[in-house]
Write a protein that binds this DNA or RNA. Structure first.
Length: 886
RNA sequence: GGGCGGAUAGCUCAGGAGGGAGAGCGCCGGCCUUACAAGCCGGAGGUCACAGGUUCAAAUCCUGUUCCGCCUACCA
């Protein structure tokens, strides 16, 4: 009888099946020759080293919801998938692998090492893609891209050359962030600052003419690189010393005392040691004062020959050693505890070293301006809008972007150096001769580009740029970018700059910034904290649909998500609820015949009309929510409609019609049921793709797949407000009786009698018409209906709109206290509300200034409350009488 | 130092273009009522952080305070 309809929904049996089906049917594919309006999203490409974490899961769930929704809405959808080569991260992974074999990349050499990474990529790089599929992502996999593809690499070279030719890429000596472990430069963004415990060392630097000056530093190991001591020009203490010399301890170098406004006289001793090679601001000061630059730390974080006796020591060992030595010889006057922020490599957590070296930079200001303007003018919207501020803040203070990396995995910079004239030739392809002297002795730059350089081109490079492709014409600018705020600067801002520069148009119309997923304590999930919840485990445990729905339900705008497994469990139950509602429907649709006709509202029962009205409200709400990226509101609306309206009420109400309704009534009910289920499943499909497809296919339906069916539209012609009001009254009566039963301890199986006293004939006849529902759902046997008739004395009371509900109960005469207490409680609540309303209406300025609509509403409330109050008090009198013995 | 966000039921959080406080989970009471015990019915529980202000009306708007969180920054 219920073949294949187990009592408990089993996601495992259906998910892979439908995913394969969709792929085989080609539903995920975008069309290049379609008249349909385009809708496009490029995926934030996950790193090839990555495996699916909560961030990916949320990010891709939201994208998939949007794409599935738009696809059903009739758009020609392109969801462009792909992966990122993740330069440093990937190189690190493969280096670790080598280390296990006792090798390092230098032993292998560049070529073999890069080959080794490609091999690794072929083997493991697709892991995350399969995980995305597991999540149900409906990307156009036939277009999958990789940032080191031939096509994308060509785009990278093209952009590099053009920027270079325009003078927007330059090469020069600057202080950059250097990771001594990765042995590469990092951009400012790739440095994580966090507070560490350290010390402030007060060092005594002897003056040439005798005496000394005290400088304060956190990094005594850099002192051999000092080339000046700076003081504030207005600092009286040192005014006389300006222009004098200090003899640097250890290396005995003679260095000047200079004056610079940068020095804060309030801090420390007011004298600052200047190490131009190892501090970004010292470097600036050095330039201003034309100071020497002495490097004392090398690219591996070890002391150089300039460090004299400390040569060869690691920078931290050197600090220990020098502190020990200086304590012994009295150079250190004082050591204070000190907490300050220090930069760390975002990939390997090593403390970064400000390091002077020759690097390639992008001049960002000219690129940032149009990107700022585009957002100001609303050509790109950032949602929620609070992130706009952050975007502007960063864009206005943008600094040049260091794009060269001293690693081997990545796009090698297309610049060639001439051995003869030492000049640089930048070209799309390897040049035959030096563009300056014509020499053929050329060697290519060994540095590669920052990974984010290629991802900045992603929205157009994936569509075939620099060729003028149909894809670009159709799908650029993309409709929306969905991403986390953590890469707003890294990625979004740079895509804006590059998109505007090379496409002359913004890369996306909307940017939807979603929250970060945290654990239940609000901590960022991380492997080191051990608080990671693995999405794949959640999928395994609760099913993809429940998991996706949870993420969407959590995704309120502008707030972080604290994921709790209990909530996921709750939505697993929701999936099961839907399954069982479908199961029930299926059982009652065995003889259903699709007459292919429109719903005839006139032929519908009141519950039918009610659910149709509620359905339409739901369609409107969910559609609005999705259009506004309010995923959680859509989820909430669906949850409430399906569980608390469709299941709790409608399915219960129609049981009598389905079980023993006469032919016509049963058929109409079936028709409405099929209609409502069909629309509901479609509404839900973007959130829960698998279970909706499974059920939809099992129930009467038209079409091959729910994922290419039309998304429901509001049908106001199917909304009958009168019927809704009528139904709500019946529901209130039922709830009233249930409440009495519950409160008075009537056993669930016991039938009660009910007396309904209606305010007027119309209400009475409506009640009469729907008697059956009250009998069934309130478990009432006899129901008497009267208009303003005599109220029974020994009966419990409930009130609904236009009707008083009485349930005569044995024992009420003997123990009237119970009902008295119940009514008193009701009355107390009512009186509070009544008082508020009365006060408002007694207030003259309210009557004068409030809109008529509100005043009317208050008046209606007053009427309603007064009438209820009267009724309640009348009942209370009776029970006071009974309690008091007359 | 600058910027941003949060503070609502025991817990996790919605809501908020100002007009009768919501959900899930948890809790209490009762039910295996033939779709579902991953369920059904009923119930309790909130001075919407604190102090001012605007308004006829503030959880919602404004100002300040406190406490949390995040981003950003060259005070050695």
């Amino acid at each position: 009888m219920t073949e294949g309809w187990e009592k408990v929904y089993d996601p495992k049996r259906v998910e892979d099946k439908w995913y394969r089906f969709w792929v085989e049917k080609g539903y995920f594919r975008a069309e290049v020759d379609s008249p349909k309006e385009p809708f496009s999203i490029v995926i934030p490409p996950p790193n090839i080293t990555g495996s699916l974490h909560m961030g990916h899961a949320l990010n891709n769930t939201l994208q998939d919801i949007l794409v599935r929704y738009k696809r059903m809405k009739g758009y020609n959808c392109l969801w462009m998938p792909g992966t990122d080569h993740a330069g440093i991260a990937t190189q690190n992974v493969v280096e670790r692998e080598l280390a296990k074999e006792g090798l390092d990349r230098f032993q292998l050499g560049r070529e073999r090492f890069v080959k080794r990474i490609w091999e690794w990529k072929e083997k493991y790089g697709g892991v995350i893609i399969n995980q995305l599929k597991k999540l149900g992502s409906s990307c156009d996999w036939s277009r999958e891209r990789f940032t080191m593809d031939e096509g994308l690499s060509r785009a990278v070279r093209e952009v590099f050359v053009r920027l270079y030719e325009e003078g927007l890429i330059y090469r020069g000596d600057y202080i950059i962030n250097w990771c001594p472990r990765c042995r590469t430069a990092l951009s400012d963004l790739e440095v994580d600052h966090h507070e560490v415990s350290a010390h402030l060392y007060h060092l005594r630097y002897p003056l040439e003419e005798g005496g000394y000056i005290v400088v304060v530093t956190t990094r005594p190991e850099t002192m051999m690189g000092d080339t000046a001591v700076a003081v504030n020009p207005h600092d009286r203490r040192y005014r006389d010393l300006i222009g004098k010399y200090v003899i640097l301890p250890v290396v005995k170098r003679r260095i000047p005392i200079i004056a610079d406004d940068y020095v804060d006289p309030e801090f420390g001793s007011g004298a600052l040691k200047i190490t131009p090679a190892h501090d970004p601001y010292d470097f600036e000061i050095g330039k201003r004062h034309d100071l020497d630059v002495v490097k004392v730390i090398d690219e591996q974080g070890r002391m150089t020959a300039e460090a004299g006796p400390y040569e060869g020591l690691d920078r931290f060992q050197c600090r220990e050693q020098i502190v020990e030595d200086f304590q012994r010889d009295g150079t250190i006057l004082k050591i204070e505890d000190y907490r300050h922020n220090v930069g760390h490599c975002y990939r390997c957590k090593t403390m970064v070293e400000p390091f002077l070296s020759k690097q390639w930079f992008v001049k960002t200001k000219p690129l940032a301006e149009p990107a700022i303007k585009a957002v100001e003018e609303g050509r790109t919207r950032i949602i929620p809008s609070m992130w706009q501020r952050t975007y502007f803040e960063w864009m206005h203070n943008i600094r040049d972007w260091c794009i060269s990396r001293q690693i081997w995995w990545g796009h090698r910079i297309p610049a060639w150096y001439c051995e003869d004239c030492k000049e640089v030739t930048v070209a799309r392809d390897r040049p035959d001769r030096c563009s300056h002297c014509g020499s053929v002795k050329l060697w290519q730059e060994t540095d590669v580009l920052d990974t984010w350089f290629s991802s900045a081109l992603w929205p157009f490079s994936t569509m075939g740029w620099p060729n003028e492709t149909t894809e670009l014409k159709l799908f650029y600018p993309t409709s929306v970018l969905v991403t986390g705020f953590d890469i707003l600067f890294f990625w979004v801002a740079r895509m804006m700059m590059m998109g505007l520069k090379f496409m002359g148009e913004v890369p996306f119309r909307d940017v939807y910034i979603h929250a970060l997923v945290r654990d239940m304590e609000g901590q960022k999930m991380s492997k080191t904290r051990g608080n990671v919840i693995d999405p794949l485990v959640m999928i395994e445990r609760y099913g993809t649909d429940a998991f996706r729905f949870s993420l969407a339900a959590f995704a309120a705008q502008g707030r972080d998500i604290r994921l709790s497994e209990e909530r996921i469990e709750g939505y697993r139950n929701f999936a099961n609820k839907i399954w069982n509602a479908a199961r029930f429907s299926w059982m009652n649709l065995q003889d259903y015949q699709d007459d292919r006709k429109e719903i005839d509202l006139a032929a519908c029962s009141t519950p039918d009309k009610w659910i149709l009205a509620r359905l339409n409200r739901t369609i409107a709400e969910v559609t609005r929510a999705l259009e506004e990226y309010r995923f959680n509101e859509g989820a909430q609306t669906l949850y409430h409609f399906i569980w608390h309206e469709l299941c709790d009420w409608y399915l219960e109400l129609i049981k009598p019609y389905l079980y023993q309704g006469s032919g016509g009534r049963r058929a109409t009910t079936q028709k409405t049921l099929v209609y409502v289920l069909d629309k509901t499943l479609k509404l839900l499909h973007p959130y829960m793709p698998f279970i909706t497809e499974e059920i939809w296919q099992r129930l009467p339906h038209n079409g091959d797949s729910i994922m290419v069916a039309n998304y429901p539209e509001v049908r106001s012609d199917l909304v009958d407000e009168e019927a809704v009001k009528e139904m709500e009254r019946i529901k209130d009566v039922i709830t009233g009786v249930r409440n009495i039963r519950g409160e008075m301890g009537v056993a669930p199986l016991t039938y009660v009698d009910v007396i309904l006293v209606a305010d007027d004939e119309k209400i009475a006849s409506s009640l009469k018409e729907h008697l059956r529902f009250i009998q069934d759902l309130a478990r009432a046997r006899q129901i008497r209906i009267a208009v303003k008739g005599e109220r029974p004395r020994a009966a419990a009371t409930a009130l609904a709109d236009g009707v008083e509900v009485f349930v005569p109960l044995q024992g009420l005469v003997e123990d009237p206290q119970m009902e008295h207490r119940r009514l008193t409680k009701e009355l107390r609540k009512l009186l509070d509300e009544l008082e508020i309303t009365q006060k408002k209406l007694a207030n003259e300025s309210f009557l004068k200034k409030a809109p008529a609509e509100i005043i009317n509403k208050e008046r209606e409330k007053l009427q309603e409350f007064s009438s209820l109050k009267e009724k309640l008090e009348r009942r209370l009198d009776i029970f006071r009488e009974l309690a008091g013995g007359g």
